[in-house]
Amino acid sequence: MSIGHTLLGLLESGPRHGYDLKRTFDEKFGHDRPLHYGQVYSTMSRLLKNGLVEVDGVESGGGPERKRYAITDAGITDVATWLAQPEKPEPYLQSTLYTKVVLAMLTGRNAGDVLDAQRSEHLRLMRILTDRKRRGDLADQLICDHALFHLEADLRWLELTAARLGQLQKVVTA
């Protein structure tokens, strides 16, 4: 899961302080593993360096320095590309996909497209495996089948999520 893309995506709705970003991130995606401040600042400095965000302003006095970050046009494009790019099918994909779906919702993009792209990618791999299975011997078949069943399970999750997008939208934008 890409923290950089997630933070960028959160910035799309408007400039925010680092502390703000951490709090929103924890709320939406952190659950049992909240983000460290250090992680936020190191990620933001990398994004600054790559020109995906810019510093919108600095508030000082009475405490630590507080920078306000804003997303650049390049940053918006980067988020869009990331969302559209299906993940390589692999185990424990759901946290990344979940983040992508929620982020798509938060940024007013079509979350269904994210899931569909991912479904296509899964199916593409399943087709390749099916094809390999068809040509291969029994050992190949058994190995491919193992992978196929896992991919199928992922796909079922994707289906289920797709069916619950409406519910999720309410929770996320609440």
Partner: peptide
Amino acid sequence: ARVAAYSDRDVTVR
């Protein structure tokens, strides 16, 4: 999905 994997292409109806 495993049946659909025998296809060349897939279309989703929602």
